[in-house]
Design a protein around this nucleic acid. Sequence first.
DNA 1: CTAATTTATTGAACATTGTTCAATTAATAA
DNA 2: TTATTAATTGAACAATGTTCAATAAATTAG
Lengths: 200, 200
Amino acid sequence: MARRNDHSRDEIREMALKAAETIILEKGKDGLSARKIAQEIGYTVGTLYLIFKNLDDLILHVNGRTLERLYEKLSSEQQSSSDSKTALLQLAKTYINFAENESNRWKVVFEHRAQTDNTTPEWYQERVGKMFTAVETHLSRLAPHKSPSEIKDAARALWGGVHGICMLALTDNLDITGVESADTLTQSLINNYLAGFTAG
Amino acid sequence: MARRNDHSRDEIREMALKAAETIILEKGKDGLSARKIAQEIGYTVGTLYLIFKNLDDLILHVNGRTLERLYEKLSSEQQSSSDSKTALLQLAKTYINFAENESNRWKVVFEHRAQTDNTTPEWYQERVGKMFTAVETHLSRLAPHKSPSEIKDAARALWGGVHGICMLALTDNLDITGVESADTLTQSLINNYLAGFTAG
DNA sequence: CTAATTTATTGAACATTGTTCAATTAATAA
DNA sequence: TTATTAATTGAACAATGTTCAATAAATTAG
């Protein structure tokens, strides 16, 4: 039983998020419960509700951290290497690799329903937006003549596509065997898309 | 209170699935519960468990019907019209239109976790596979020189892409305003992809 | 037509869930 | 040492999925 002032609010917060991340990774969203998190960190349910509005709020923060972690991976890719096309292909591999390694965590990002007030907080939307920045960078290098809004749209079309293949593969909805198929298919998607995009 | 033999097993089954579909459409997956379905059809929870293994099983059948309904829509598209490229663009519009109209039902198809034994039944996998047939038909017309396995992969790459954009739009993860953006983005994805695919 | 048998349907019971908040207990101030 | 403050608890509530002995309606036998 934790004693008063054993941990600061922020420490408890961090412990709770870490515990939740572990549970989700191992058992998926259905394995998660407020009481399990509490038990894991040596506090009781009540304490969690002093720090998070509710369990949805807690999960939203877990998801925010998942996005952040993927962003780190994507943006730390060495830009130096060769051409932008290769870089984009590599970004997709990193993306898929991340989604596979942390598949339960990644799925929760999309399983989690919107808040009751139906608005995602601004800090979360920002992290979503950041997911496309690396893609935009390379696309604008490949097609310097395109306008910023064309680049923005293209990044969302292409990366939405990569995401779709990845998710279908994770959820076993591709009607195809093997997980490496996601890699092959995204490479094909990117190659063909770029052919049209850079020509147009 | 329903009396014995008021309805056959199949009738109760159909009533339960219809009720579940309505609840999901209106309130989403979280609004669904065994007791609500039972109350809606005038039976009690116990009866549902005589017909379905459990609630997951029931939802799996709802999802199967959702896939079937989309398949009907996609395959009834008049093939006669113009070229295959136009047909593919139209297929995407139908797909997105369906996903938006029945967004809660469509989301459940992907929110729903795999069974505990982790295997999706064969009848379900079949319906998943059918989602790609119309796409394959048009792709093979556009690129007659490609092998069947190339066509199969291309259909999954392209349609996975369409799906990704669609889902990101539905779940508000595109960092872009307006739902019509899904339409614009998929059209761009298809046009550019085909440019590369038919050339390569 | 009644009694015995079968079986469709019930609903109470159980464990578990999210969430709240008066009660408690430890730290701090007086 | 006592009084005050506030961090933490955990019992309580409503709702969930699931089970299965009990019930009651239909069917069959006598």
